[in-house]
């Protein structure tokens, strides 16, 4: 069985399960919207949002909602020990990792597709100013976050206090992603947009994704082997 066939088999299985219950999509989405609101109360002063607040709130809600999605996705695999059964099958370990990553990534992108217009609406952020660049930042930023998160969530599946350890490990490591996402998005949303800056951040995100995806593919096998 080929690598991509395995990836697709695993990702499709996750999508089928999610399409049945829609638990993750609904709860994650609602959570993300709540986060946007909670932060709005801190960053909107006398009816006016602080500079760059929209970009910051967007990325914070993505990071929070992503952690929730990661935790729940792997809780599903843990419930009946199904991840163990998948690891026992004769497929290559990296394909399992990518399969799970695709599932998490798609879920997060769906949430972002809703949350970005919401932020745009609430904060008058010009999300249509440089749509390709914005989508590029969102996709690469989310890919990096999901790549590190999928690895960490998978390897914590048998650890004690995994619920709290996932964000504890994930947030410090993904700080460069959040900085790049927020600053890149802020450069697009600013009153005087600076698209060159946004492009520079996009380049860093691509580089980050490349490095951490490679590392995760290498690490996943040995870490899950046991």
């Amino acid at each position: 069985m080929g690598f991509f066939h395995t990836v697709w088999t695993i990702a499709r299985k996750d999508l089928v399960i999610e399409s049945r219950s829609r638990e993750l999509a609904y709860t994650t989405l609602f959570f993300a919207v709540s986060v946007v609101l909670v932060f709005s109360f801190s960053f909107v002063v006398e009816g006016v949002a602080l500079t760059d607040a929209a970009a910051g709130i967007l990325w914070v809600s993505i990071a929070f909602a992503g952690t929730l999605a990661l935790g729940r996705t792997f809780e599903r695999e843990r419930q009946s020990d199904t991840l163990k059964a998948v690891l026992l099958s004769p497929v290559e370990r990296p394909a399992i990792y990518i399969g799970k990553l695709v599932g998490v990534l798609l879920l997060m992108l769906v949430v972002e597709a809703v949350i970005t217009p919401v932020v745009g609406l609430l904060f008058q952020a010009p999300i249509d100013r440089a749509p390709l660049l914005l989508v590029g930042l969102l996709v690469t930023g989310t890919l990096g976050f999901a790549a590190v998160g999928t690895l960490f969530a998978a390897m914590l599946i048998r650890a004690q206090s995994r619920d709290v350890l996932l964000p504890v490990l994930l947030y410090p490591i993904t700080i460069p992603l959040v900085i790049a996402g927020v600053r890149g998005t802020a450069a697009i949303f600013a009153a005087e947009p600076n698209l060159a800056v946004a492009q520079a951040w996009l380049a860093m995100l691509v580089f980050f994704d490349a490095v951490f995806l490679t590392l995760a593919l290498w690490v996943f096998g040995p870490v899950m082997g046991e």
Binding site: I179, F207, L215
Partner: peptide, 30 residues
């Protein structure tokens, strides 16, 4: 806090932490 057998997991975090240094430095700097 992760319990017995967390050495491999910790090793992955160690590698990721090291690989992250240039990204942290660069992003914070910029």
């Amino acid at each position: 806090f992760a319990g017995a057998g967390s050495e491999m997991v910790a090793a992955a975090v160690g590698v990721f932490g090291m690989a992250n240094v240039p990204f942290v430095y660069w992003s914070v700097n910029v």
